[in-house]
């Protein structure tokens, strides 16, 4: 019985520790998110986004390893789950670079696509939340759709 309560305290201590780690990681993510609002430099923004992605992976690790208890399972079970999920590394690299290359191709060979990215929408449209402005923005969408059709 005393062995049981000892184990009980260990488990509760681990849950407390992981809760604190997850909260701290989330708070750091949010601080970075708030900090990024004022930053315009693309390189700096990319760096912060990289850090946020690393923190996201850390959070995912703590949830799977401790809350879902995977770290304390047998290695056989860990491998049957983690190895197939490793496919995601390939998926992400392949699809994101493919998307980026599609954008580059269209910017090089589709003048309409490139021009679209330079036309500024008038600032009052979509900037605020009232109904008539929503309607105006919707109308704006309609003209854009027509342009695409024309193209």
């Amino acid at each position: 019985m005393s062995d049981n309560t000892h184990e009980h305290h260990d488990v509760i201590a681990e849950i407390k520790k992981v809760t604190i780690i997850l909260s701290v990681l989330t708070i750091v993510e949010l601080i970075l998110g708030f900090w990024m609002i004022g930053i315009t430099s693309p390189g700096m923004r990319l760096g912060i986004k990289g850090v946020i992605v690393i923190l996201m992976m850390a959070k995912a690790f703590y949830i799977v390893a401790y809350f879902m208890h995977l770290k304390h399972e047998l290695k056989n079970l860990i491998m049957t789950i983690v190895v197939p999920l490793a496919l995601f590394v390939w998926f992400i690299i392949a699809f994101l670079s493919d998307g980026n290359s599609f954008k580059e191709l269209r910017n090089n060979y589709d003048p309409h696509f490139k021009e679209q990215a330079t036309i500024q929408v008038k600032q009052e449209e979509g900037a605020h939340a009232s109904d008539e402005k929503g309607g105006a923005a919707h109308g704006e969408k309609a003209t854009e759709a027509k342009k695409e059709e024309h193209h």
Binding site: Q120, V121, Q123, G126, A127, A129, G134, A137, K141, E144
Partner: peptide, 22 residues
């Protein structure tokens, strides 16, 4: 939804001020 956002509807503009897609 009250702001006009839904599937097929996007009232928001891109961060650089250009028109956004749905």
């Amino acid at each position: 939804h009250h702001e006009g956002a839904w599937w097929g509807m996007n009232p928001f503009i891109n961060a650089d001020g250009t028109a956004s897609t749905t």
